[in-house]
Design a protein around this nucleic acid. Structure first.
Length: 602
RNA sequence: GGGGUGGUAGUUAAGCUGGUUAUAACGUCGGCCUGUCACGCCGAAGGGCGCGGGUUCGAGUCCCGUCCACCCCGCCA
């Protein structure tokens, strides 16, 4: 049997589009009850769909049956209705785009009723995230979430327009791949047809997109899901989406240009913001020196001050801890907190606790006195006036300022001070709020070292993937001084988030062999692990390079979302579970037997 | 693996230094209401405080353990 609405009466408008120009029209709206105001003889309902909210009114004089039924309406009931668009006269609601009009309802159908919802479908409700995730289908009804996902959809569309419009092919790569070592932990998928063997879920299409270049496709892009079995953060989900790009016969600058064009379009269309191109660039070394990491948030200062040479020049300046640090090839750095930002003893104790949580031994500090002397400092007694003066000068310290020090292993000092800088920036309110203008600080971080020294293993390891092209002028140091070799690797950073990264690839087999050698990887081992790519390089691989953008992170920043979870329709919790479906879940023994897998849990 | 924050009616929260029947708002239920848009008014139901131990005459309130969520370090580009 045909139902009156849907089958016979079709929707004419969304709930977000009716304005004064539609007055007099008979319209059909479908949507959810967003709120109700029942005055007995007049019932006002705000009807919501993804386009917006429209006030509809039920009165006996419009239709008695509809008015009677309207008394039963509750939040989140799903309705179909027909009525006439009328002016609100003197009762305009300026908060709504549709606030000039209302619909006087002559016919109503309740498609479905709703139990009281476990969370309110409203933007400003600060609901426990546990509940939001468990009832994600309701959470996703909230207008902010709908806007976020609509924005995300637009980013995908703009990406396709941008790349397809400049000669890129959208090609797909497999998710079920062979495990290759290095990088992130992979999710593993047991093979039914190959007993005892496993696929890995691709952590990125990296090797495949390079093979596309070898195959001659020249310019490739893909909006692709990637999988990494690593711990989650607010900007990390185990499955996430990359805008993956690879190009042949290009320089680093040409890769940048392709990406910058996309970034500019996204910001222009979705935020109305003109991004000035080309984007700022910074050497990796400079980023480490000034900010202690390779993804600096440039929206505020509190930069690190490098003091290692100063301290060494004074041979520790009478402070045993400083002397030990520089003698052991450690570094010394400080952050100057200007006088205007006061930190209580309690604040400092908390900061010290944070620092210790990140591997610091403590948090030495010094308050600068009127004559440049140090107070409230464990270093004050032993330090020589000469070193103290030199440090003050290096930091540009004024009376009333506070210096916070770290010294010791370089990696530790950087990690601690980089995080301390962020903590202080937030604490002092130095980070501009979303939407305040001038807050989009993009940055290319370029030319990092090809290798980093693994102190535990006592060997050089690839800082990135092992197919990154070293700078030509550094190739001669591959064997003699690996730490000095820089490479064509680049990260795109926005406001402290890494939103993209890539490299120009090594396409020459001989240099590749030398890189493997420097990494202590034998030819046999290399062949076993990356054989198919090495083979490919032998058969006329073009020079190529590319980048991958973290699409979810871009969406998060564009929408001003507080977490990646707010731009992912169905995200995982920090433990990687799905509170709505219960994934990961149990499977029965027969399924496992078929896969030749046994549980080792009790 | 480690550090931190939180878990109280359907929802969001309050509950100070442990003390009679655990508060409020929204929602829900019943009644009234023709201009509301945080509608209003009258009335009602609804939880025993994540879970398990313990201390105590007495525990949301203190202690221990545990689970879950979130933030961070490690890990991850």
């Amino acid at each position: 049997m045909a139902q009156r609405f849907i089958d016979e009466i079709k929707r004419t408008h969304s709930c977000g589009e009716l304005t004064a120009k539609d007055i007099g029209k008979t319209v059909v709206l479908f949507g959810w009850v967003h709120s109700r105001r029942d005055h007995g003889k007049a019932v006002f309902i705000d009807l919501r769909d993804r386009a917006g909210v429209t006030q509809v009114v039920f009165e006996p004089r419009f239709d008695e049956k509809a008015h009677e039924l309207a008394g039963e309406l509750r939040l989140e009931y799903v309705l179909g209705l027909r009525g006439v668009v009328e002016s609100r006269g003197g009762n305009v609601n300026p908060k709504l785009p549709t606030g000039e009009i209302e619909v006087h309802v002559s016919e109503l159908e309740i498609f479905n009723r709703s139990e009281p919802t476990p969370l309110l479908v409203e933007d400003e409700i600060d609901t426990d995230e546990q509940k939001r995730l468990a009832f994600r289908f309701l959470d996703l009804r909230r207008p902010v979430m709908q806007k976020a996902l609509i924005t995300r959809s637009r980013i995908n569309q703009i990406t396709r327009e941008h790349f397809a419009g400049s000669g890129f092919l959208e090609l797909e790569t497999p998710f079920l791949v062979k495990y290759t070592p290095g990088g992130a932990r992979n999710f593993l998928v047991p093979s039914r047809m190959s007993p005892g063997k496993f696929y890995a879920l691709a952590e990125s299409p990296q090797l495949f997109k390079q093979l596309f270049m070898v195959a001659g496709f020249d310019r490739y892009f893909q909006i692709v899901r990637c999988f990494r079995d690593e711990d989650l953060r607010l900007d990390r989900q185990p499955e996430f989406t990359q805008i993956d790009v690879e190009m042949s016969f290009v320089t680093q600058d040409e890769v940048f240009t392709a990406v910058e064009g996309l970034i500019a379009k996204i910001w222009k269309e979705l935020l109305g913001v003109e991004i000035e191109l080309p984007l700022q660039r910074m050497e990796f070394d400079e980023s480490m020196r000034r900010f202690g990491n390779d993804k600096p948030d440039l929206r505020f200062g509190l930069e690190h001050v490098e003091l290692t040479e100063v301290v060494r020049g004074h041979d520790g300046g009478g402070v045993p801890m400083l002397k030990e640090a520089v003698d052991a090839k450690g570094i010394v750095k400080a952050i100057r907190v200007p006088k205007v930002h006061s930190l209580s003893r309690k604040d400092l104790d908390e900061l010290e606790k944070d620092a210790k949580g990140m591997g610091a031994k403590g948090l030495a500090r010094a308050k600068i006195g009127e004559g440049g002397e140090w107070t409230q400092s464990p270093l004050a007694k032993s330090i020589t006036p000469e070193l103290r003066g030199a440090i003050n000068a290096a930091c540009g310290a004024e009376p009333g300022d506070l210096l916070l020090f770290q010294f010791g292993r370089e990696a530790m000092v950087h990690a601690v001070l980089a995080n301390l800088r962020l903590i202080l920036g937030k604490k002092f309110g130095m980070i501009p709020p979303y939407g305040s203008g001038g807050q989009w600080r993009f940055l290319w971080v370029v030319n990092p070292p090809l290798f980093e020294f693994d102190e535990e293993a006592g060997t050089w390891v690839a800082a990135h993937h092992a197919f990154t092209r070293p700078h030509d002028e550094d190739v001669e140091y591959l064997e003699t001084d690996p730490g000095r070799v820089k490479c064509y690797r680049y990260d795109l950073v926005l406001n402290g988030f890494e939103i993209g990264g890539g490299s120009i690839r090594l396409h020459k087999p001989d240099v590749q062999q030398r890189v493997f050698k420097a990494l202590g990887i034998s030819p046999e081992e290399a062949q076993a692990k990356f054989g198919f790519l090495l083979d490919a390089l032998k058969f006329g691989a073009p020079p190529h390079g590319g980048i991958a953008l973290g699409m979810d992170r871009v969406a998060m920043l564009v929408t001003g979302a507080a977490s990646l979870r707010d731009v992912v329709a169905f995200p995982k919790t920090q433990k990687g579970t799905d509170l709505m479906t219960g994934a990961p879940g149990d499977v029965d023994d027969r399924q496992l037997a078929e896969l030749h897998v046994k549980r080792s849990l009790e």
